[in-house]
Write a protein that binds this DNA or RNA. Structure first.
Lengths: 263, 263
DNA sequence: GCTCATCGTTCAATATGTAGAATAGTATTC
DNA sequence: GAATACTATTCTACATATTGAACGATGAGC
């Protein structure tokens, strides 16, 4: 559903391809931000223009997409907000993670995130806490990142139950500021597995240290991978001396959160 | 698409009925909050179970719906967040309205909202500012309300270019704490048209005064109705003495906002 | 002012998503 | 523990959503 041959597979596999198309349109409009015409959307997503038009009309009828009759351009509309708000209000992980994220952010003076893991595809930031004293990092609730990148990626690789060798093709498509060598990365994954914390020291974004600890939503049996993770982001060398303490704090927070969620 | 014969019309009219179904499922899951099974969803929306199942699977593949394999229950998933975030970042009205809402909320010590108007169907809250000193009103960004209700409803009726008589059937389906008489309501609509501000004095929610002023996004020509509105909410008699000043402030803010958006 | 290019939109044939019954699985009841 | 009453799911004929070409509208370039 992502990366190389994206939409067409999802469309073909599903019994409701219109929905896959609709979701793709919504995501495209979200990514672009600027309003787009029918043809531009169709071209970008490899859709037939007429089909694309019908999809857009259906989305407009649902208030998920706004249509400017003058310019004939389409853009996201406020309907998506309603859904997001409903989700935010009921997500257990988010409710329980927020105070923890706030505490860690305050104690260490950095930015913390709660993320949800979607297999090997990607992760989504669902909660955030800023300490306020450092720069505003350009991450936002709702942002998507590739699954295997940065510190969270090492957690996913470590606990997802995958063969490391199988991950190599995916690993090689990732974009880092300073990509780690495969062997080094494997070693870091092993370390993450041992400590239940992973660190990315300036690889993903140079000059930025990222720490992540895995969280399991519904028990840890069956060797299923973690569903979420707690993440801490520090700029520059600032967290360096505190790093051991931060790792321990984040790992402990993640463990206690997993227990709370298990019930 | 709302009220009485809801889904089936939208499905039949559209050339992409699967999308209408998908949106309905998402909204239902959002409203319920608690995870639901296939049949429960299908029954609620008058869908064929198998069709509903296919829709759900497609939504799961897009990360818009989460599927718990153990309980076979479906719920909203974090994917909706990504879309909402993208929308929030680019909406002009929201960016420009927020500081205005903050200012008014602070100055008058009440809660202010920015809402987007969807014809006669409904409005959606897209921005909010709380003064902090009063009770937290149970409104949230993303909430939907019927279009014609409360103070915003009077604005819509006043400036939407509708015949008042045509609105009567809709008016009568609304639910108020203390429903106004039709004649009184018409008079208040006329007053709103004259002053470019509307007031709901405890009708929609008893004990709560609501003030609303219309905003036009893309010029005010052609007699098209307002696209948005600024709303102020005061609890109890508190704002009573300040009311004239508040009305003027909100109307002025709405006018200046309309001008900014016109460019 | 005309041409050309590109846009949004409509239309009819057909590939295909959908409806409804049949199946298989699971909890609940007696 | 068998039977009941639900579930979720698969399957297939048919209605229909999708396609790709034709249409009309719009704007750029000369």
């Amino acid at each position: 559903m992502s990366q190389i041959a994206p939409l067409e597979d999802a469309v073909r596999a599903s019994k409701a391809p219109a929905i896959a198309r609709a979701a793709a349109v919504l995501r495209l409009l979200g990514k672009r931000g600027t309003p787009m015409g029918v043809q531009a959307i169709a071209r970008e997503l490899n859709l037939v223009p007429s089909t694309c038009l019908y999809a857009l009309r259906a989305l407009v009828a649902e208030d998920l997409v706004a249509f400017d009759a003058d310019t004939k351009r389409y853009a996201l509309d406020a309907g998506v907000l309603t859904l997001a708000r409903a989700w935010l209000r009921r997500d257990q992980f988010n409710d329980l993670a927020q105070p923890i994220l706030d505490r860690v952010a305050r104690e260490f003076g950095l930015t913390t995130l709660g993320v949800q893991i979607f297999g090997l595809d990607h992760i989504i930031v669902t909660a955030m806490s800023q300490s306020g004293q450092n720069f505003q990092l350009s991450t936002q609730v709702g942002s998507r990142f590739p699954a295997l990148v940065s510190a969270t990626g090492r957690c996913i690789a470590a606990f997802g139950g995958y063969e490391l060798a199988d991950l190599k093709p995916r690993f090689e498509t990732l974009r880092w500021d300073e990509a780690p060598f495969w062997d080094d990365w494997c070693a870091q994954v092993a370390e993450a597995r041992a400590n239940e914390v992973a660190v990315d020291a300036g690889h993903y974004i140079s000059g930025v240290t990222v720490v992540a600890a895995p969280v399991w939503k519904s028990g840890r049996e069956a060797g299923r991978g973690p569903s979420h993770a707690l993440v801490a982001i520090g700029i520059g060398g600032a967290p360096r001396s505190e790093l051991p303490r931060l790792k321990e704090a984040l790992a402990a927070a993640a463990r206690s959160l997993s227990e709370q969620l298990a019930g």
